[in-house]
């Protein structure tokens, strides 16, 4: 039953991704002009001029002279065999540029997700069980502020504190000596040392809302008769809470992965630009601005698939956790 459900959802993803690819392509084509227009404008700034013949020549070589639907069809059919095309700006296959950055993006998102849960779960349970205690008020206040602060602002403030009070630049994911080094254990350790800042920045707002959701759901459960029954039977308070009400309250908690993961992926774009992380965000922004369409398209497409995968994971977890959820 569960396998049929998963299979069905995966099959659903096919037309969905097709629609995403169409939207991505249209979005990237939306700005007037194409990469060459931007390129010529850039050349013009440094007083270089390109004659019309070589412009036409380049345009034909990039396939930009063809009608839109031909370009789209060519792009999609190449995608199916794993070819993302060439980046105009970098003169490199897109796949070479994309994978490392997507890998770091995914790693960052998952670490943040783990951080979010690890922090939100105990605090949420605590806030509900010790309702209106000082700890609850502190958690609620921090939670609200976390919700209301834009990620990039938080990143800026932390960077400011880092520079002014600790005299160190906290941006990036690696120290300069490891930036281009091959993977090794010291490099991984270096990554972990740099990772906490983006993880905290990215995780705050999701943590804040998860705390609130957990608290509200658990509060609903704590008044149920079965809790009184268990208490009357002499179960220790800790097990009593963990074993029954928390399990029920966990359900909406898990379903949030459906929007937490996509939000992380999405939010990571802006944060990465501020903190200059070598993830998908900054490169995608640059590609969008210079109309490097295959590169930008690959990013939009890959980030969308991450989003869809996040939703799929959430649905599967939900079904596993709560058999009452119907396999529709």
């Amino acid at each position: 039953m569960i396998w049929r459900f998963i299979l069905k959802r995966i099959i659903w993803m096919v037309p969905f991704m097709f629609a995403v690819s169409l939207v991505a392509f249209l979005l990237i084509q939306a700005p007037p002009g194409d990469y060459l227009t931007t390129y010529i404008a850039k050349l013009g700034e440094s007083n270089e001029v390109m004659d019309q013949a070589s412009v036409d020549n380049l345009r034909a070589r990039f396939g930009l002279d063809k009608p839109l639907y031909v370009q789209y069809f060519k792009w999609v059919s190449n995608l199916l065999v794993g070819d993302f095309g060439m980046s105009f700006e970098w003169r490199q296959p897109v796949s070479e540029l994309v994978w490392q950055r997507m890998g770091l993006t995914m790693m960052l998102s998952f670490s943040t997700l783990l951080f979010t849960w690890a922090v939100a779960f105990p605090i949420g349970v605590y806030s509900a069980v010790r309702k209106y205690s000082i700890g609850d008020y502190i958690a609620t206040t921090i939670g609200f502020i976390g919700l209301a602060t834009p990620n990039f602002l938080l990143a800026l403030v932390l960077m400011y504190i880092g520079v002014v009070h600790f005299g160190s630049d906290v941006g990036g994911l690696f120290s300069s000596e490891y930036k281009n080094a091959p993977w090794s254990w010291p490099k991984v350790w270096n990554l972990i040392q740099h990772l906490w800042l983006p993880v905290v920045v990215l995780g705050t707002s999701a943590t804040a809302s998860l705390i609130r959701i957990m608290r509200a759901n658990l509060l609903d459960e704590l008044n149920r008769p079965y809790v009184d029954t268990a208490r009357a039977k002499g179960l220790s308070e800790f097990w009593l809470i963990m074993k029954y009400p928390v399990r029920v309250a966990l359900n909406p908690f898990v379903s949030t992965i459906g929007w937490v993961l996509p939000n992380l992926v999405s939010g990571a774009v802006v944060t990465a630009i501020v903190l200059s992380l070598p993830t998908a965000g900054p490169l995608m922004l640059q590609a969008l601005l210079s109309q490097d369409m295959y590169l930008a398209g690959a990013f939009v497409l890959l980030l969308s698939s991450l989003t869809v995968i996040g939703m799929l994971i959430s649905d599967i977890l939900l079904v596993l956790l709560d058999p009452r959820v119907r396999y529709e």
């Binding site: 309702k131 609620t140 919700l147 209301a148 834009p150 990620n151 990039f152 707002s205 999701a206 804040a208 809302s209 609130r212 959701i213 608290r215 509200a216 759901n217 509060l219 609903d220 008044n223 909406p252 379903s255 949030t256 459906g258 929007w259 937490v260 939000n263 992380l264 999405s266 939010g267 802006v270």
Partner: peptide, 25 residues
């Protein structure tokens, strides 16, 4: 810049009666 405090279950009647905050309990 994520989705603030939106529990994903908004359209079920149960969730509508259920506040994201605390007070109402």
């Amino acid at each position: 810049m994520s989705n603030p405090g939106r529990d994903d279950t908004e359209d079920t009647p149960h969730a509508l009666a259920l506040p994201a905050g605390s007070h109402v309990h």
